[in-house]
Design a protein around this nucleic acid. Structure first.
Length: 421
RNA sequence: GGUGAGGUGGCCGAGUGGCUUAAGGCGCACGCUUGGAAAGCGUGUAAACGGGAAACUGUUUCGGGGGUUCGAAUCCCUUCCUCACCGCCA
């Protein structure tokens, strides 16, 4: 959510930048500023009345003590009038605040000036392409066949006990999954991130804090009886650690492994085949809270951190800067990582690193004190480091040989084996 | 799940309708003191939203929401949470 004062200060440049997201915010901005002016005026009136009422209450107290009952009763009558009037003003104020809020939540984050123009993923800017696309042997297979051939994952078994999109990992297949989680966490903690293991269910307030609620309610699994939501990403519990917090140190670096639960209503077809899109999957997330002056420096560090992991895993990948049209509602700038999955001859998104600037922080009320002792909004950033299933798919597809599936060196200490036969 | 006790500032903790502008303590910051430090003494120490160039100032907030009253941390209703004991249980 944008802060109303920032809209006032930067209205014209915001309107220009939002065009990158193909949005004309002129009317929204005008109406929200007008409402805010009205809100201020209303508050001023209401504050004055309340101050008067407080004065009267004190005087009445004094009068009773000194026995001036008749005078007190007169003042009481006047008080009643003030009360009525101020109540009406307060109701109006709350109403206006609601209206302002409901406009503000409709306005997406302002894109960074470097964001390319564009409508869809076709307009994303390729920044870098690293590694060679492997030349697979004849008869190379997609991962959904390999996982069956080598008994790594049983999709049908998951289907039986839960439903589609809930795979069961078996034997070396399970071990590989566990190895990846440990490996990612170790890479992240070595880079200075503190490891957390948060709850996998969150309350309603947390859903609001990171913006899943109320808009994307249908994307989350909901435990009705207790009114708790299954997390769609570790970003939700971890970012909410900082809800209503005034921090005094930068940067704050967190990493967390969690399973992620997504209903993915409306998905279908080959996009969802095998591991490509699941209802439950594992992911290791990195989150940073940073001073506004440092957040873009941090963003670069996060991008190169993710790149270094993919380098070590010897996966061919490309880094894309998302165009305005593909940018998420809350992000100011996003870099996507895609790895090449040779068995299905596709690029798969495995990480998305974003700077939200103060957009999330405003909703969360995540602040720090500046040199003058004034509270200011922090910047928040997050990224996947990394999402497991598609890394898993690319790893086994790209490393399939006549002898079996080879495990990259960096992972071998974690798997305890160097080939799956 | 049952019964009981609670929720007050960064923390501890007093406060049963106006004497609270939330006592007192701890912590923190600054100053005095000191050769330096500790102790001691003094001053300051929440957030949100307004007004003001600023100094300063108004309103709201004692878990959340609602109510009674001229006036609520205090009384009433409701909801959430915490703790203790019991039951169940990895």
């Amino acid at each position: 959510m944008l802060h109303i004062n920032k809209i006032r200060e930067n209205k014209d440049s915001y309107i220009a930048l939002l065009k990158l997201k193909n949005i004309d915010a002129t009317d929204l901005f005008d109406s929200v500023i007008a409402k805010d002016n009205e809100r201020k005026a209303t508050q001023q009136q209401s504050d004055e009345l309340l101050a008067k009422g407080n004065q009267f209450a004190k005087q009445i107290g004094e009068m009773y003590k000194t026995g001036k009952v008749a005078e007190a009763n007169l003042l009481k009558e006047e008080s009643a009038l003030i009360k009525e009037e101020s109540k009406a003003l307060q109701t109006k104020q709350i109403e206006l605040e609601k209206e302002i809020q409901s406009i503000l939540v409709q306005i997406p984050n302002i894109p960074h000036p470097s964001v390319p123009k564009g409508k869809s993923d076709l307009d994303n800017r390729i920044l870098k392409e690293v590694g060679k696309i492997p030349n697979l042997m004849k008869g190379a297979k997609p991962h959904w066949e390999l996982t069956t051939d080598y008994n790594l994952i049983d999709f049908a078994l998951g289907n039986k006990i839960t439903g589609a999109g809930f795979p069961v990992y078996i034997d070396k297949g399970a071990r590989l999954q566990r190895a990846l989680i440990s490996y990612f966490l170790d890479k992240n903690t070595a880079a200075g991130y503190i490891e957390y293991l948060p709850p996998h269910l969150v309350n309603e307030a947390s859903g609001f804090g990171t913006g899943q609620l109320p808009d994307k309610e249908g994307q989350m699994y909901h435990a009705n009886e207790d009114n708790l939501y299954l997390i769609p990403t570790a970003e939700v519990p971890v970012t909410n650690f900082f809800r209503n917090v005034i921090v005094d140190k930068f940067p704050i670096m967190c990493t967390a492994y969690t399973p992620c639960f997504r209903r993915e209503a409306g998905s279908y077809g080959k996009e969802v085949r095998g591991l490509n899109r699941l209802h439950q999957f594992d992911k290791v997330e990195i989150v940073q809270v940073q001073h506004p002056n440092k957040s873009y420096e941090t963003l670069d560090l996060m991008v190169s951190h993710v790149a270094s992991i993919l380098d070590e895993l010897e996966l061919p990948y490309k880094i894309l800067q998302l165009c305005g049209g593909d940018l998420s509602f809350t992000s100011a700038i996003t870099f996507d990582f895609e790895v090449y999955s040779a068995g299905q001859e596709r690029w798969l998104e495995v990480s998305s690193v974003s700077n939200f600037e103060s957009y999330q922080a405003n909703r969360l009320k995540l602040r720090y004190k500046d040199g003058n002792g004034k509270t200011q909004l922090c910047h928040t950033l997050n990224g996947s480091a990394l999402a497991l299933p598609r890394i898993y798919a690319a790893l086994i597809e790209n490393n399939q040989t006549a002898q079996g599936i080879k495990i990259p060196k960096a992972l071998q200490p974690y798997t305890g084996f160097d080939i799956i036969k």
